[in-house]
């Protein structure tokens, strides 16, 4: 195994982790501020990807598609919050799970109705289609590096938004005491809608960015959603920092596990058997990591006060 290959896999893990962070940040923000568990977050990811693919196909511009994905996901998020989610804040988690499960059925089947069952394809924009020379001799796609960059930029932006701006101050206040912030005259309902739309836009962005790497199809959001759950459970629900650490951890463990475990098992059990056993264990690896972390820290690594 060459160093170049290993570096490539580490970068793949980082790119995967950063993409998970975009999903997990919204989920954890929505839970932290509103106390809401949102299963339909994966649908917003899907909406972002479909909006990007549809607009890019119609206009020929990936960048317009990217703008459309942000707008469509944020709009869908705001609409869903106003019509459905708003009624769920006072309900128990069971009702929230069911209502957002129902939303998944509606969004998935609705998208299938509009776009059909065949996947759409989204091309990587030509400005980002090249590869970059890595130290150690390998080459790595520029587009994936850009995703890592976008993810880091979003993480920094979210940090600044939450710690430095007035909106961020209100979000933090809403996390710690929602009655008090409402009593101080902040329009808490609008704040909730804004937070939900922000989380939705991040999910839409993730969907659009990944849409150019994979095919854009109904149901694409669900595996990512469940991984994002694992991320925020590991990181501590409500903590953005936890989401970032958890996302990078899950991204690296999953990618490197799939890469290294079959080789490791093959060394002990022979190539054919080792490869299947390694692949099977690798597919479970992040859940094993999650179970281990929870066995010692039941509230996750960076448990928030919420």
């Amino acid at each position: 195994m060459s160093t170049a290959l290993l570096i490539e896999q580490i970068l793949n893990g980082l790119q995967f982790g950063v993409m998970l962070f975009l999903m997990a940040a919204g989920l954890t923000l929505i839970f932290g501020v509103m106390g809401l568990i949102n299963l339909a977050h994966g649908s917003l990811y899907m909406i972002g990807a479909f909006a990007c693919a549809a607009v890019a196909a119609a206009t020929g511009s990936f960048w317009l598609g990217l703008v459309a994905s942000l707008a469509a996901a944020a709009a869908a998020g705001a609409l869903v919050e106003l019509v459905v989610i708003r009624r769920l804040y006072d309900r128990d988690h069971l009702d929230q799970v069911l209502a957002t499960f129902a939303l998944i059925l509606i969004f998935s089947e609705g998208t299938r109705w509009l776009f059909g069952s065949f996947p759409l394809y989204l091309d990587i924009p030509s400005a980002l289609s090249g590869a970059v020379q890595l130290p150690g001799g390998g080459r790595y796609p520029l587009y994936r590096l850009t995703i890592i960059g976008v993810g880091i930029a979003v993480a920094v932006g979210l940090y600044l938004l939450i710690s430095k701006t007035r909106l961020g101050m209100r979000i933090r206040a809403g996390e710690s005491d929602r009655e008090m912030i409402a009593a101080l005259g902040v329009d808490i309902r609008t704040l909730y809608t804004v937070v939900f739309a922000l989380g939705a836009a991040l999910a839409g962005l993730a969907g659009a960015l990944v849409g150019a790497l994979q095919s854009v199809q109904v149901g694409m959001g669900e595996p990512v959603l469940i991984l994002a759950f694992v991320v925020i459970v590991i990181g501590g629900i409500g903590s953005i920092k936890g989401a970032l650490v958890g996302a990078i951890l899950v991204g690296l463990v999953d990618t490197l596990g799939r890469f290294l475990l079959p080789k490791l098992f093959a060394a002990f059990m022979g190539p054919a058997q080792g490869a299947t056993a390694g692949a099977a264990i690798a597919s479970m690896l992040i859940y094993i990591v999650m179970a281990l972390i929870l066995a010692f820290r039941p509230k996750g690594l960076f448990a928030a006060n919420a």
Binding site: H93, I226, V233, M284, I288, M290, L294, P298, G300
Partner: peptide
Amino acid sequence: TSGVYFIMITLAFAQMIYYFAIS
């Protein structure tokens, strides 16, 4: 754990078995 953690963890364990069955 309890509450949302319980929901998500049971979900994650089921996914673990699901992916095991697939692979």
